[in-house]
Protein backbone atom coordinates (compact mmCIF):
# COMPACT_ATOMS: atom_id res chain seq x y z
CA UNK A 1 0.00 0.00 0.00
CA UNK A 2 1.61 3.21 -1.16
CA UNK A 3 0.49 6.60 0.06
CA UNK A 4 1.58 9.88 -1.45
CA UNK A 5 0.94 13.23 0.10
CA UNK A 6 -1.00 15.56 -2.17
CA UNK A 7 -1.76 18.46 0.18
CA UNK A 8 0.35 19.73 3.06
CA UNK A 9 -0.83 21.77 6.04
CA UNK A 10 -0.14 25.07 4.28
CA UNK A 11 -2.01 23.92 1.15
CA UNK A 12 -5.04 23.06 3.28
CA UNK A 13 -4.87 26.41 5.04
CA UNK A 14 -4.66 28.28 1.70
CA UNK A 15 -7.56 26.28 0.26
CA UNK A 16 -9.77 27.02 3.26
CA UNK A 17 -8.85 30.71 3.13
CA UNK A 18 -9.77 30.88 -0.56
CA UNK A 19 -13.04 29.02 0.07
CA UNK A 20 -13.88 31.46 2.86
CA UNK A 21 -13.27 34.42 0.51
CA UNK A 22 -15.37 32.80 -2.19
CA UNK A 23 -18.24 32.19 0.24
CA UNK A 24 -18.14 35.84 1.33
CA UNK A 25 -17.94 37.04 -2.26
CA UNK A 26 -20.86 34.94 -3.45
CA UNK A 27 -22.93 35.84 -0.40
CA UNK A 28 -21.88 39.53 -0.52
CA UNK A 29 -20.78 39.41 3.08
CA UNK A 30 -21.49 37.22 6.04
CA UNK A 31 -25.14 38.11 6.54
CA UNK A 32 -27.52 35.17 7.03
CA UNK A 33 -24.76 32.58 6.60
CA UNK A 34 -24.98 29.33 8.55
CA UNK A 35 -22.09 26.88 8.16
CA UNK A 36 -22.86 23.25 8.88
CA UNK A 37 -20.19 20.57 8.86
CA UNK A 38 -20.87 16.90 8.16
CA UNK A 39 -19.27 14.75 10.91
CA UNK A 40 -16.59 13.95 11.59
CA UNK A 41 -14.03 16.04 9.73
CA UNK A 42 -16.50 18.33 8.01
CA UNK A 43 -17.40 19.79 11.40
CA UNK A 44 -13.81 20.84 12.09
CA UNK A 45 -13.47 22.28 8.60
CA UNK A 46 -16.73 24.20 9.13
CA UNK A 47 -15.32 25.73 12.33
CA UNK A 48 -12.10 26.67 10.55
CA UNK A 49 -14.01 28.36 7.73
CA UNK A 50 -16.17 30.25 10.25
CA UNK A 51 -13.02 31.41 12.06
CA UNK A 52 -11.39 32.55 8.82
CA UNK A 53 -14.55 34.45 7.83
CA UNK A 54 -14.56 36.14 11.24
CA UNK A 55 -10.94 37.21 10.69
CA UNK A 56 -11.65 38.52 7.17
CA UNK A 57 -14.70 40.48 8.27
CA UNK A 58 -13.99 41.55 11.84
CA UNK A 59 -17.04 41.80 14.05
CA UNK A 60 -19.05 39.15 12.25
CA UNK A 61 -19.93 35.92 13.95
CA UNK A 62 -21.10 33.19 11.61
CA UNK A 63 -23.22 30.46 13.24
CA UNK A 64 -21.51 27.12 12.80
CA UNK A 65 -22.76 23.66 13.67
CA UNK A 66 -22.76 19.98 12.85
CA UNK A 67 -25.27 18.08 10.77
CA UNK A 68 -25.27 14.30 11.13
CA UNK A 69 -26.65 12.57 8.07
CA UNK A 70 -26.47 8.93 9.21
CA UNK A 71 -30.25 8.51 9.53
CA UNK A 72 -30.72 9.83 6.00
CA UNK A 73 -28.28 7.53 4.22
CA UNK A 74 -29.51 5.22 1.45
CA UNK A 75 -27.22 2.31 2.37
CA UNK A 76 -28.23 1.64 5.99
CA UNK A 77 -29.38 -1.89 5.23
CA UNK A 78 -26.36 -2.89 3.13
CA UNK A 79 -23.48 -1.76 5.32
CA UNK A 80 -22.58 -2.73 8.89
CA UNK A 81 -24.61 -0.57 11.28
CA UNK A 82 -23.25 2.95 11.14
CA UNK A 83 -22.76 4.87 14.38
CA UNK A 84 -24.44 8.25 14.31
CA UNK A 85 -22.86 11.52 15.42
CA UNK A 86 -24.22 14.59 17.11
CA UNK A 87 -26.33 17.13 15.26
CA UNK A 88 -25.98 20.62 16.69
CA UNK A 89 -27.52 23.43 14.70
CA UNK A 90 -27.30 26.58 16.82
CA UNK A 91 -29.81 28.76 14.94
CA UNK A 92 -33.02 28.42 12.94
CA UNK A 93 -32.01 27.99 9.32
CA UNK A 94 -35.20 29.32 7.72
CA UNK A 95 -34.32 32.02 5.20
CA UNK A 96 -30.57 31.65 5.71
CA UNK A 97 -27.83 30.59 3.33
CA UNK A 98 -26.60 27.22 4.55
CA UNK A 99 -23.10 26.18 3.53
CA UNK A 100 -22.58 22.44 3.95
CA UNK A 101 -18.97 21.46 4.56
CA UNK A 102 -17.45 18.02 4.08
CA UNK A 103 -13.91 16.78 3.66
CA UNK A 104 -14.23 14.64 0.51
CA UNK A 105 -16.85 14.71 -2.23
CA UNK A 106 -17.06 11.30 -3.93
CA UNK A 107 -20.32 9.57 -4.94
CA UNK A 108 -22.46 12.50 -3.77
CA UNK A 109 -24.61 10.25 -1.63
CA UNK A 110 -23.58 11.85 1.65
CA UNK A 111 -24.53 15.25 0.25
CA UNK A 112 -27.87 13.88 -0.93
CA UNK A 113 -28.50 12.67 2.63
CA UNK A 114 -27.39 16.04 4.00
CA UNK A 115 -29.86 17.88 1.77
CA UNK A 116 -32.67 15.75 3.18
CA UNK A 117 -31.43 16.42 6.71
CA UNK A 118 -31.41 20.17 6.02
CA UNK A 119 -34.94 20.00 4.65
CA UNK A 120 -36.14 18.43 7.91
CA UNK A 121 -34.57 21.29 9.88
CA UNK A 122 -36.19 24.14 7.99
CA UNK A 123 -36.33 25.99 4.71
CA UNK A 124 -33.14 27.89 3.99
CA UNK A 125 -33.06 30.48 1.19
CA UNK A 126 -30.29 28.48 -0.43
CA UNK A 127 -27.90 25.62 0.30
CA UNK A 128 -24.28 25.62 -0.90
CA UNK A 129 -21.62 22.94 -0.72
CA UNK A 130 -17.97 23.37 0.21
CA UNK A 131 -15.53 20.45 0.14
CA UNK A 132 -11.83 20.21 0.78
CA UNK A 133 -11.32 17.54 -1.90
CA UNK A 134 -13.41 16.61 -4.94
CA UNK A 135 -12.24 13.20 -6.11
CA UNK A 136 -14.84 12.69 -8.83
CA UNK A 137 -16.92 9.54 -9.51
CA UNK A 138 -20.28 11.13 -8.81
CA UNK A 139 -23.28 8.79 -8.75
CA UNK A 140 -25.85 11.56 -8.37
CA UNK A 141 -26.36 14.94 -10.07
CA UNK A 142 -24.57 16.86 -7.33
CA UNK A 143 -21.66 19.31 -7.54
CA UNK A 144 -19.73 21.44 -5.09
CA UNK A 145 -19.86 25.25 -5.11
CA UNK A 146 -16.50 25.61 -3.36
CA UNK A 147 -13.69 23.11 -3.86
CA UNK A 148 -10.32 23.10 -2.10
CA UNK A 149 -8.64 20.76 -4.55
CA UNK A 150 -9.79 18.57 -7.43
CA UNK A 151 -8.03 15.21 -7.16
CA UNK A 152 -8.83 12.82 -10.00
CA UNK A 153 -8.64 9.30 -8.57
CA UNK A 154 -9.47 5.74 -9.46
CA UNK A 155 -12.08 3.80 -7.48
CA UNK A 156 -9.31 1.60 -6.10
CA UNK A 157 -7.58 4.52 -4.45
CA UNK A 158 -8.36 6.05 -1.08
CA UNK A 159 -8.19 9.68 -0.06
CA UNK A 160 -7.02 10.04 3.52
CA UNK A 161 -7.74 13.39 5.09
CA UNK A 162 -5.86 14.03 8.33
CA UNK A 163 -6.78 17.06 10.39
CA UNK A 164 -5.05 18.38 13.50
CA UNK A 165 -8.32 18.13 15.47
CA UNK A 166 -8.76 14.40 14.83
CA UNK A 167 -5.41 13.07 13.68
CA UNK A 168 -2.83 15.46 15.12
CA UNK A 169 -1.64 16.73 11.75
CA UNK A 170 -2.98 18.47 8.63
CA UNK A 171 -2.34 16.28 5.61
CA UNK A 172 -4.13 14.80 2.60
CA UNK A 173 -2.79 11.71 0.90
CA UNK A 174 -3.82 9.29 -1.81
CA UNK A 175 -3.34 5.66 -0.85
CA UNK A 176 -3.74 2.46 -2.81
CA UNK A 177 -3.12 1.22 -6.33
CA UNK A 178 -1.99 4.37 -8.07
CA UNK A 179 -0.67 2.83 -11.31
Amino acid sequence: MTARTVLQATDIQRALTRISHEILEANRGAADLVILGVPTRGVFLAHRIADIIASIEPGTIVPVGSLDVTMYRDDLLDQPTRASSATDVPVAIDGSTVVLVDDVLYSGRTVRAALDAVTDLGRPKSVRLAVLVDRGHRELPIRADYVGKNLPTSHAERINVHLVETDGTDLIEIAGESE
Partner: peptide, 23 residues
Protein backbone atom coordinates in the same frame (compact mmCIF):
# COMPACT_ATOMS: atom_id res chain seq x y z
CA UNK B 1 -22.19 2.96 25.70
CA UNK B 2 -22.68 2.95 21.93
CA UNK B 3 -26.43 2.55 22.42
CA UNK B 4 -26.51 5.39 24.96
CA UNK B 5 -24.53 7.65 22.60
CA UNK B 6 -26.86 6.78 19.75
CA UNK B 7 -29.80 7.59 22.04
CA UNK B 8 -28.35 11.08 22.54
CA UNK B 9 -28.32 11.62 18.79
CA UNK B 10 -31.93 10.42 18.60
CA UNK B 11 -32.83 12.87 21.39
CA UNK B 12 -31.79 15.89 19.32
CA UNK B 13 -34.83 15.36 17.07
CA UNK B 14 -37.26 15.73 19.99
CA UNK B 15 -37.32 19.53 20.05
CA UNK B 16 -37.59 19.97 16.31
CA UNK B 17 -40.76 20.88 14.46
CA UNK B 18 -40.16 17.87 12.23
CA UNK B 19 -39.41 14.98 14.56
CA UNK B 20 -39.11 12.07 12.16
CA UNK B 21 -36.00 10.46 10.77
CA UNK B 22 -36.18 8.31 7.62
CA UNK B 23 -33.78 5.59 8.79
Amino acid sequence: IGLLDSSEDMATTADRAHKKLPA
